[in-house]
Design a protein around this nucleic acid. Structure first.
Lengths: 228, 228
DNA sequence: ATTTGTAAGTGTACTTTACACACTTATAAT
DNA sequence: ATTATAAGTGTGTAAAGTACACTTACAAAT
């Protein structure tokens, strides 16, 4: 088929860039490899595609194995095919990224797989082409964050305006004016202001907000979120 | 490696969405399959990844085989992995899209492979998941056209403002005001106005423009091109 | 030489959005 | 009652987006 005679089969892997936010910095989840090749070095979590599995499912399965997380939305970043990217055997790998809220989900990690969170800037060198995958994923995350309220995934259900602002500051690596930020976010009309306050960080306490999925879906997608 | 025991090898294909512009409509290049499966039906041009080839190179090779075109920039759209997408054997396919100028390059086509241009809206149903690939590629093209001057690829070297406007109208399927369009494009300062006129479409004749690669690369990438 | 038809070419007022910027308020601890 | 701390709030200015209609250059026909 495809009029092509040489049909060579090869390994297809999936690697996951797991983004998290700890309230200050954008982080990625890495594991210290306990197996060859490159044992002892840091890498993304990954695995091989199975014969009766779609890529998205493989990404979700892999994320689950390493984090215990279920039902996490993942987005395809791209497929990486450098010939010697894996020194053992020709392997093509599709990268997916996930967004998770660190505080809710960091329990099951560390022990089994020596998984650790690193801030994106301070992460160690990764094996193979994983650094390139991370760069691509970051680019995609930025594009997505411009037009969609990714806070749904990266923040706890209830959060303060300052937390939301810090999330955007972390993703774009800029600093924003809090008055302009709050005005902009209000104008989008996709948040619900709660009566509760978070008093952990100040005496006055700051109001908590929650994403309102209804309002969000009714909102126009044009000029959503920030222009940076 | 990857701590995974079942390493199953499978076929990796590449399918190409070739976009062209004829001055009026955005088109895609399709071939009528002269081979099984689905002989006689319309499909994207595609082929299999070779053992010592990266995906990008395979996309370029395939585009060359079907169009004779060389050195065309192609961008990865995504990888499609539905289990039965190819009825013969599990095959995962990575889609790439290309942008080409129809008038310059339509000679070598038709004969050998019964390739034909179809306007995007009026294209026939395609085999497998190729329709889905086209939809994804279109989305990507729109995102790209917002921030980059894709006219470089889709238009002849010298073109009129009306042609450029029609290109954007075709991609976004909207109609634009010619005064606002021209003002916007001028403000980007990436075109060079030539002394020549194109007199094929009017008695007065309309001035020809050319992309100025230098100016373009010096221009800021923020808010480049149109906001639609 | 004059008229006529056709598409090209051009500018302004108004509206919306972005951006810069500094003081007041609520609360808990002392 | 005082104090320290972070939260909360509004306005004026600049930039960009958008709606909108008449004039001009030219070739063809008379």
């Amino acid at each position: 088929m495809y009029e092509d005679s040489d049909k060579e089969r090869l390994l297809l892997a999936v690697d996951c860039i797991v983004f998290g936010f700890d309230g200050e910095k954008l982080k990625i989840l890495l594991i210290k490899r306990g197996f060859e090749p490159e044992r002892g070095k840091w890498s993304l979590v990954g695995g091989f595609l199975k014969q009766n599995e779609v890529l998205q499912a493989a990404a979700i399965r892999i994320l689950h194995r390493y984090t215990g997380l279920d039902n996490i939305y993942m987005e395809q970043v791209g497929t990486f095919s450098d010939i010697d990217r894996d020194p053992q055997e020709r392997t093509v790998s599709t990268a997916y990224y996930a967004l998770i809220n660190i505080e809710n989900h960091s329990r099951n990690l560390d022990h089994q797989f020596s998984a650790q969170w690193f801030s994106v800037e301070e992460a160690p060198r990764l094996i193979f082409d994983h650094d390139r995958m991370v760069r691509h994923a970051l680019k995609r995350l930025k594009v997505k964050a411009e037009t969609e309220p990714i806070g749904f995934e990266l923040l706890p259900e209830k959060f303060t305006m300052l937390q939301l602002q810090k999330l955007y500051e972390a993703i774009y690596n800029v600093s924003l004016d809090k008055r302009n930020f709050i005005n902009k976010v209000r104008s989008l009309d996709i948040l619900e202001k709660l009566d509760e306050k978070d008093k952990t960080s100040s005496r006055k306490g700051s109001f908590l907000y929650r994403f309102d999925a209804d309002k969000y879906h009714r909102a126009e997608r044009s000029r959503l979120m920030l222009n940076l």
